[in-house]
Structures are given as structure tokens and as C-alpha cells.
Nucleic acid binder design. Structure first.
Lengths: 215, 215
DNA sequence: GAGTAGTCTTACTGGCCAGTAGGTACTGGA
DNA sequence: TCCAGTACCTACTGGCCAGTAAGACTACTC
């Protein structure tokens, strides 16, 4: 019987360190996104990356360091994608819209990254969640600033919590979209835009919804 | 040196099975919420519950079964709390409002439950996420039905995705609230209600937000 | 006070996996 | 052609933890 699995045939080709590191990080994001931090093993990651375990440790350090590096890299990519997408110097609604578009485009094109960021990182306690919360906080702050600019009524806590809700709606809708991927990113983004903007638009005009007396 | 830790002093008091099972589930929810599924050990859970490990296995089965049982119990509690809270036979906005109130009240009073449901369960692949998605799906379906009733324009995919966004906004805002707990549940709930209802209210009246031509 | 059913324990096994020791091959310069 | 440096490897160790074997204690019944 011949070898039917093309498992790492012996020694891997020599490559400069920078290239290998990128390969390893790609593999790590893939594995972490599929299995989660704990269930992912360094053996599997090195396997997917096409190298041996000691290389992993030599280049990226411990499992925790590796994971943190993944998070930082993917978070940075996401935030940069959004920053590049937002058209500043335009009306608030356009800024929000372009930001949403950039966000959904990124998620559509980088599902694994999104999995690692949204699911895995936040569910591990400790420094990871902190790292992630930091990025999330920056996103919320960005949206909050936008809201504060657009309306006098949204200030401080008010703006922060509305922004948190909005960012959460985006995250959740992105998840839903991954399970129902038949629609293009633009359609999904537009739907969220309709929901939140027209809602917030009314707030801007001073409308307030009053809870009725309890029965 | 005397024993300074009141660790399980020898044999635990005999208790009927139903009571023990409840204690164990309480302990399990606590530990899972703090550490996550993988990092939580059966030793720690049995310790917190005040019994020995074999009891755990005798009563609740394997670690996975125990976790699934926790999820099912907490999901059921949450859904029942919401169902009890919603005032049916009233206008759509009142139904939504009462549902939101019930949801935020539950989260405020059962933080550990919420942690297990929202963070831990969804980040473990396999049967857990399925179980959780099931409940989540029911919540989304409920909201979607409400939206469909209220408007002709929201149908099928449209309603489903809007509902997903709304539920996600609620989840996210609940998380934010846990980190900023100075405000009462009602205030936070009202804020979300303003955001989403007035937004959706415009959709009902036929308003549509058009994305501008890209630059 | 002997039987029995259910509660509870100590003390172990076996597997998985993070991390390492101690090498071998390749490449490029002197 | 030798050397230095870097890329890369196989093969192991040690700890943690899910799950279990084997039995001990209690309470209730007749």
C-alpha cells in the first residue's frame, strides 16, 4: 500500500523567516477559528502550516503568545479595512454607511478572521478578551463620536450605549449572514443601515418613544 | 498549624438526588461562566458543589452532557422569563418593549447564566452551539413574527435578518451593561427601544434610506 | 439487626498536549 | 572547501484532567 495521505513529505523547503511567520499565522487563524483556543493543538497548527512544532515555538513563542498575535493581526486588519472604507468629510449617515459596507465586505472575505475575533477571543478570559475588548472599544468609540457629532441629544453614556448596541447589531447580523450567505454584503449592510439610521434619524428630530404605564 | 481552609470537611451531608442535582448545576453554571468550557475542570465543579467527582458523573454524566444540561436549563429559564414578561394582545411596540424589559431584568439578575449562554455556549462548536442556536433561533423567530405582523414590508428574509440584528443589538447591549452596571435595567432597555423602534417605525411608514453613489 | 437501596468517598489510569533536548540539512560567504 | 548561521527535524517528558474501579457509610424497612 502506498502512502495515500500527502502528509508533510519529510523536510519542508527552506524559506525566509518573515514568509514562514506569515504562513504560520495564516494556519493558526484557520485552526483557531475552527476549533477554538483550547481545542486547537500546536501539533495541528504546525501541521497545517507545513512545518514542525519546534519551528512554531522558535518563531511565535508559546500558544498564548501565538493566539494573542493572531488576534492583534486580525483586529488590526479589520480596523484598517474600516478606516480605509469610511468616507470622512461627508454627512454622518454617509460615514456610517461606508463604515458598515467596509465592515461587511471584510467579514465576507475573511470569515476565519471574523470567527477568531468575534467568537474565540471574547470567550477566553484573561489578556485575550482584554485585547479584543480594546479593539471593540475603539470601534464603539468611533461610532459614538459619529453619533455625538450628529446629534445634541446623544452624549456620553447615551452615545456610548447606543454605539454598543449598534456595533452589537452589526456583529450579530454578520453572524447571521455567515449562516445565510446567499445575499451580497451590500444588501445586508443596507438593511442594517435602514434599521438603525432611520431609527436614529427620528431621535435626531426629537422624537421619543414613551413606555406605557405597566398593566 | 490548623486547617485554615474550610474545604469540604470530609463527607458531605446526605441529600436527596433532586436537591444535589440542582446544587451541582448551580455550581457548574458558576464555574463554566467564569472559566469557559475547556478551562473548567470537573474537579473544580465538584469542589464548588461540595461533593466528589464520581457523584458528578453518576448524576449528570460526562462533562459534555453536564454542559449541555446547563445550557438547556438556563436557556429555558431565559425564554420563560421573556415569555412571562411579554404582554400579548397589545400593540406591537408594547409587546417588544415588555419583551426587552423582561430580557434585561433577567440578565441583570442572572449574570452567570447570561455569560454561559452568550459567550461560552456559542464559542464551543458542535452540539452546544446547535442547542444555543436553537434557542437563539426561537427568539429571532419570535421577534420576526412580531415585525411581520406590524408591517407588510418586512417579510421572510427581510424580517429574519432585521430580527437577527435586533436580537444581536440586545445581546451586545446586555454585555455593555454588565461592564457599566450603574444604570437600571429599565433605562438601558428604553434606550434600545428608542433606537430600534423609532427606526423600524419609519420603515413601517414607507421611508427608505438610499445609499448615495460611491465616490 | 439483617437486608437493600441509594448516597458518597478515596485513589487510581490513560490519553492528550504544551513545551524541549539534541540533533540534521541547507545556504552563502571567505 | 571550510565555517557560520539559520532553517528545520525526530523523539521525548511531564503535567493536567476526564473518567472509573472498588468499596464505605447511612437510612429505611420488615
Amino acid at each position: 500500500m502506498q502512502a495515500d495521505q500527502p502528509v508533510r513529505a519529510g523536510r519542508a523547503k527552506r524559506l525566509p523567516r518573515a514568509v514562514r511567520e506569515r504562513q504560520i499565522l495564516d494556519a493558526a487563524v484557520d485552526v483557531f477559528s475552527r476549533l477554538g483556543f483550547h481545542a486547537a493543538s500546536m501539533d495541528e497548527i504546525s501541521d497545517v502550516a507545513g512545518i514542525s512544532k519546534p519551528m512554531l515555538y522558535a518563531y511565535l513563542g508559546s500558544k498564548e503568545e501565538l493566539f494573542a498575535t493572531c488576534i492583534r493581526r486580525e483586529a488590526t486588519r479589520l480596523m484598517e479595512a474600516i478606516a480605509d472604507g469610511v468616507e470622512v468629510d461627508r454627512a454622518a449617515d454617509v460615514q456610517l454607511w461606508t463604515g458598515l459596507r467596509a465592515f461587511f465586505d471584510f467579514v465576507g472575505e475573511n470569515r476565519a478572521s471574523w470567527q477568531v475575533l468575534h467568537r474565540q477571543a471574547s470567550s477566553q478570559g484573561g489578556p485575550f478578551a482584554a485585547e479584543l475588548n480594546d479593539m471593540r472599544g475603539r470601534a464603539i468609540g468611533l461610532v459614538a463620536a459619529l453619533l455625538e457629532n450628529a446629534s445634541e441629544r446623544a452624549r456620553g453614556q447615551e452615545a456610548q450605549s447606543l454605539a454598543a448596541a449598534l456595533v452589537g447589531a452589526g456583529e450579530s447580523l454578520a453572524d447571521w449572514w455567515l449562516d445565510n450567505p446567499e445575499e451580497p454584503a451590500a444588501v445586508v449592510a443596507a438593511r442594517l443601515m435602514n434599521l438603525v439610521w432611520l431609527g436614529f434619524g427620528d431621535l435626531v428630530e426629537g422624537a421619543v418613544w414613551h413606555p406605557p404605564a405597566r398593566r
